[in-house]
Write a protein that binds this DNA or RNA. Structure first.
Lengths: 147, 147
DNA sequence: ATATTTAAGACCTTTTTAGTCCTCTTTATA
DNA sequence: TATAAAGAGGACTAAAAAGGTCTTAAATAT
């Protein structure tokens, strides 16, 4: 199955939300979960995990919450996805060099290798800085203001 | 998780095996399973399924087995994968147009759409005719003959 | 007849996904 | 210093998907 897990999807939404905050502003789970349409408890667990991985910094207690611990320009979609799901291997035979005993005789191997390269490129060339600058987000804000 | 299922992997090996047979030669499960390193009973189920889907034609009884029911040049990797796993959607939000209520405000959506296009292109541009012509396979045959 | 082959479907185990829930700790502030 | 507001940590669960096996039946060549 080639599908992004919910966990990674939610992680992306969360990191994007933080990328959109004014520099230094602390956001807390409840706010983010509501804004991004993510189950609160699940997001809490995800953020806890992303903190350990060095994407976020948390502060406990009243007024606490999360901030990005890296520049949004230095975080790619691929980073967040692989943090949540582990390294991407489109086919088991791409896990290790020499893992697949068929590598020398299997013509499909090369197709996978190239497909994977292209796929990773798609995801790694997209930073959260870039995402945060999307005109779509500005449009959304405008719409809200009109209301 | 972005990973090819075993079922699809085995299906690919099976179809490739059939693509390599002399035109009209019937191959049977036991032979293919052994040659391709696939659990026999599982491959039987997979082939049964691929027959229903119109990729293979089966004949029962002694001397029976499977042949391709399409030209290898007309079957792509994507065809076989989607037959086994269903249509590929890298993200749930790509399932239907207008499925994702965030489509107008979510900047990630477009990244997924493009990544998916490129990915499908990688898989659909590879036919079994092309795979069967790979020099790798000829090398493998040579090696065997030497033995 | 019998041996060989697929067809069909019931059944099973393990892994992954997608969460929830409860208790504990930290911290600002009234 | 009591209290409310936050995250930390871990146990737990339900549902779905993955990856099979097994048994019985039907077809067919010899």
């Amino acid at each position: 199955m080639f599908r992004l897990s919910k966990g990674a999807e939610y992680a992306i939404r969360g990191v994007l939300h933080l990328s959109l905050q004014p520099r230094g502003r602390v956001a807390y789970i409840d706010e983010i979960a509501t804004a991004q349409g993510v189950p609160r408890a699940y997001l809490a667990k995800i953020f806890q995990y992303l903190s350990k991985k060095g994407f976020l910094k948390s502060t406990r207690g009243a007024g606490g919450g999360f901030v990005l611990d890296r520049d949004p320009g230095e975080i790619t979609l691929l980073d967040v996805i692989e943090a949540m799901e582990g390294p991407i291997h489109l086919n088991d035979c791409l896990i290790h060099k020499d893992f697949c005993e068929r590598v020398d005789t299997c013509p499909v191997h090369d197709v996978w290798r190239e497909a994977q390269e292209r796929f990773l490129e798609s995801l790694s060339s997209c930073t959260f800085e870039k995402l945060a600058e999307s005109p779509k987000l500005k449009k959304a804000t405008k719409t809200k203001k009109k209301k």
